[in-house]
């Protein structure tokens, strides 16, 4: 059934991704592929895996962006441009356009926790859902001919046969810098909701009207390296012994 459940779903399970913390190591990409190629549904195939033209299906990819402030200058590490690593996977949108366009009912949004899934036995591989998604969250598996997407590791988060600490999506469990968080964004008291409220968590492409569940935490403000270095030259704030030393050294 590709009509969306009555909004909002009682639970809104999703990810919160901290762009201030992500170092772009791609560990979540690898762990996602590793878990999901043996988990829910068809394997995540690679085409020409050992050749020059290798490509494959991924549910999570890291892009890197350079952000240049107005009037800023790009000049190696002393410039004002910031490099921001940007993990991207399915945002499990409340108003998911990929669900309603599906002609077969294979694409659906779960009414209880809001996870968007593909029933691969019903998917005909028409690719229309991938066209409808503005985020590029869906990729057709060229070997299986069915659409693949992030399942929020549904085979982990409800899995009582694994340790409780592991009952989070693989990418969250793996992230070495704790840039990825999992939780219920419908519950205002959940850790992820508090994080979003405190850090000003944002939606991607709000103008597309998809109402994403996943939120991104913006990078914290930062001084350019040059400005930080210039600040170190100012010693007027020194007190006590250091003030005396500052004065003595100046006189030498």
């Amino acid at each position: 059934m590709t009509c969306l459940p009555s909004n909002p779903t009682p639970k809104k399970l999703g990810l919160v991704i901290d762009l201030d913390v992500c170092v772009g190591c791609h560990a979540c990409v690898v762990s996602c592929k590793e878990w999901n190629t043996g988990g829910y549904g068809a394997a995540l195939s690679d085409q020409d895996p050992y050749g020059a033209d290798v490509s494959g299906t991924f549910l999570n990819r890291i892009h890197s962006f350079e952000v240049l402030p107005e009037g800023g200058e790009v000049a190696a590490e002393r410039g004002e441009a910031r490099l921001i690593h940007f993990p991207k996977s399915c945002l499990h949108c409340e108003d998911a356009p990929c669900v309603t366009v599906c002609p077969t009912g294979a694409s659906y949004k779960r009414a209880d926790d809001g996870i968007v899934l593909v029933d691969e036995d019903m998917c005909i591989g028409c690719g229309l859902c991938a066209w409808a998604c503005p985020y590029g969250a869906r990729e057709m598996d060229l070997a299986a001919g069915v659409m693949k997407k992030c399942t929020l590791c549904i085979d982990r988060i409800y899995n009582e046969t694994i340790e409780e600490v592991d009952r989070v999506p693989s990418c969250v469990r793996t992230c070495p810098t704790n840039a990825r968080h999992f939780g219920d964004l419908a519950d205002p008291n959940s850790a992820v909701s508090i994080m979003v409220a405190e850090r000003g968590g944002m939606d991607l492409m709000p103008e597309q009207g998809t109402k994403p569940v996943n939120k991104y935490l913006p990078p914290r403000p930062r001084l350019p390296l040059a400005a930080a270095a210039a600040g170190r030259e100012d010693t007027s704030g020194a007190t006590g012994f250091f003030a005396w030393l500052d004065g003595m050294l100046d006189r030498i």
Partner: peptide
Amino acid sequence: ESATGLGNLGRVRLFERPH
């Protein structure tokens, strides 16, 4: 800018593709 939500920091340019 709207796709990354980083527009308030400045102009956004792709630095590296995922692969």
